[in-house]
């Protein structure tokens, strides 16, 4: 029995992995070298420069920059709105994914298309898009421009696809028999969702939420036309960075950018862990 137990361990994970992942051949080694140089020049070196520029100013400089009254307000606003939007994304994204996977009706493919639009649309256009419905001339008579709801709305628009797109494939792959087993064991629909479905999709929801949060924290383009960038009211962190760049205060810009970068790195690390967890569970 013990031997059988070992045999059965994690069959789902091994099936997907290539069976003989090779080491590096001279050709692929060269390819890796070129790729790494390019990746370093494009991504790693510039991001390191952000950290280095911050470090040059020392802890004091960093602290002064991020606790500057206006900057601190912007960071607070960004974090609050990004969290708020992520919370809505978690609920609505899961709901949308559920409907797309479990329901079927004419026009469903159109919904699929709609979900990706915010991802593909230029961010400045996204701002214009929202302005046309929620701006001063919008047909709804709701005007959010230059007010906090504008920030919320813009972030909600650009982060819409993340939770949907991470949850959807996991939901589609769920074993319907597990839900049937739960039903035959006496569980009602809500219990099945809460105790069988939700635990299975939670890592995917978390990964989507992390991406949405990161995107929300760093959003810039969609806010430009919509929020008015009013200090202490609708100005977000990335706008502060841009203002610092424009006033040629690169160390201050780098300090705020470092805060955003830390969030990005934390998100990437979290997603990596979550993916590993999903694979392990098989």
């Amino acid at each position: 029995m013990t031997a059988a137990a070992l045999d059965g361990a994690g069959p789902a994970t091994s099936a997907r992995r290539p069976r003989h992942p090779g080491g590096l051949t001279p050709a692929s080694g060269l390819g890796l070298g070129v790729a790494l140089v390019w990746f370093s020049l494009l991504v790693l070196l510039p991001l390191a420069a952000v950290a280095a520029t911050t470090a040059e100013g020392g802890w004091g400089g960093f602290w002064r920059a991020v606790t500057n009254e206006q900057t601190a307000a912007a960071i607070r606003l960004t974090v609050t709105q990004a969290l708020l939007v992520t919370a809505v994304d978690v609920v609505m994204g899961t709901l949308v994914a559920w409907v797309l996977v479990r329901d079927s009706f004419p026009g469903k493919r159109l919904l699929e298309l709609l979900i990706d639009i915010p991802f593909a649309l230029p961010t400045i256009v996204a701002g214009l898009v929202l302005l046309s419905l929620y701006g001063p001339d919008g047909p709804l008579g709701v005007d959010v421009t230059n007010r906090r709801p504008a920030v919320f709305l813009a972030l909600l628009f650009v982060t819409t696809p993340f939770v949907v797109r991470t949850v959807q494939p996991v939901l589609a792959e769920l074993d319907p028999e597990a839900e049937e087993a739960a039903a035959s064991l006496g569980a009602g629909r809500l219990t099945i969702f809460r105790r069988i479905v939700l635990p299975a999709i939670t890592p995917a929801i978390a990964a989507g939420a992390a991406l949405a949060f990161a995107r929300g924290m760093g959003e810039y383009g969609s806010l430009v036309l919509l929020s008015g960038n009013l200090p202490f009211r609708t100005e977000v962190a990335s706008v502060r960075i841009l203002a610092s760049i424009e006033s040629d205060d690169l160390p201050a810009a780098a300090s705020v950018a470092t805060v955003l970068l830390v969030v990005s790195l934390a998100v990437i690390a979290a997603i990596d862990l979550l993916q590993r967890r999903m694979v392990r569970r098989g």
Binding site: L44, L211, A214, M217, G221, I245, A254, L261, I271, D272
Partner: peptide
């Protein structure tokens, strides 16, 4: 390999403004 795999996703979660700043700082 694992580090590279995770870092490749990094640009998805970095603010475009930070990207611009980072490039200016180097180039």
């Amino acid at each position: 390999r694992r580090l590279l795999s995770a870092l490749v996703d990094l640009p998805l979660s970095v603010s475009p403004v930070v990207v611009g700043l980072a490039l200016v700082l180097v180039y």
